[in-house]
């Protein structure tokens, strides 16, 4: 299988007044048209990995990679303009919380239309027709109404569907979903995941699913990468999660409550070893 995305030795460093913070320290993986989960706790570098692939790292950060290759395009060596043309068109990203990631003063419809118009020369009525169709395909039942609403007027689940519509309208080949359901109610999470699942399958996209929820990622993805302190500590098939070797992954799995298991009180907690972060 030819890789859609190849990442080799990706590093992201922030130079601050108090010293250099290495957020990502040499991450390497390959991705085909599959679902890859990246799991890790806050500060493990999982989000920065995603943003570095998007080319959306803050300007004061330093990104280096031996290889960062998307569908034959060397991302380390293309112009900002070319990179921008890829964004939203061939690589897209879904952010965590629709409350903050949608522009509060622009209607949902206009934000989706804007997304189309960034990449295609297309008439206004044609664009809004496609935006409405896209809203329908993320299972919004009354697209014409939602089209004219402002982000604060819809629920979190609805907002995240609009976000998915906005990011998938240009039919990207790679989607990076950065904690797409963490800000949502548990009941809505499953709805949104199902929609995401369906669209990713239908359109044959590659997906990087970033989350802190190991259980969720293992049920949703084909492969899982576990990150700790800016490094990949373990890579394994989602179905083989139980055979995880690294003590961090084992620790994570261990502290989950189990139904029907023997009474485990208190639940074990993670005992972080300093050598993991080396």
């Amino acid at each position: 299988m030819s890789a859609l995305l190849t990442v080799e030795d990706l590093r992201v460093a922030f130079h601050t007044r108090t010293g250099t913070v290495d957020a990502v320290r040499g991450v390497s993986f390959e991705l085909g048209r599959e679902r890859l989960g990246i799991v890790g706790e806050s500060g493990s570098g999982k989000s920065q990995t995603g943003r570095a692939i998007m080319g959306l790292t803050p300007p004061h950060a330093e990104v280096t990679a031996r290889k960062l290759d998307f569908d034959g395009i060397d991302l380390t060596n293309i112009s900002a303009r070319a990179r921008r043309d890829l964004r939203g068109d061939r690589i897209a990203m879904i952010l965590q919380d629709p409350k903050y990631s949608l522009d509060p003063v622009m209607t949902i419809g206009r934000q989706i239309v804007e997304s189309i118009q960034a990449h295609e020369k297309i008439g206004k009525s044609e664009a809004s027709k496609r935006a409405l169709a896209m809203l329908e395909s993320v299972q919004i039942r009354d697209p014409a109404r939602v089209y004219d609403l402002y982000p604060h007027e819809v629920s979190g689940g609805m907002g995240q569907r609009a976000m998915i519509a906005m990011m998938l309208i240009a039919n990207p080949q790679l989607l990076i979903a950065d904690e797409p359901t963490s800000a949502l109610d548990v009941t809505v999470q499953l709805d949104v995941l199902r929609i995401l699942d369906q669209l990713v399958t239908e359109r044959g996209m590659g997906l990087i699913f970033i989350s802190h929820d190991l259980r969720l990622v293992s049920s949703f993805c084909d492969r899982v990468i576990v990150m700790y302190a800016g490094r990949i500590v373990e890579q394994l098939k989602a179905s083989e999660l139980n055979q995880a070797q690294h003590p961090y992954t084992r620790g994570l799995l261990d502290c989950m409550p189990r139904l029907g298991a023997a009474d485990r009180h208190p639940l074990p907690t993670l005992d972080r070893k300093p050598e993991w972060a080396l």
Partner: peptide
């Protein structure tokens, strides 16, 4: 939302 706007290209 600025990150999102940039992510849209």
């Amino acid at each position: 939302y600025i990150v999102a706007a940039r992510a849209k290209g």
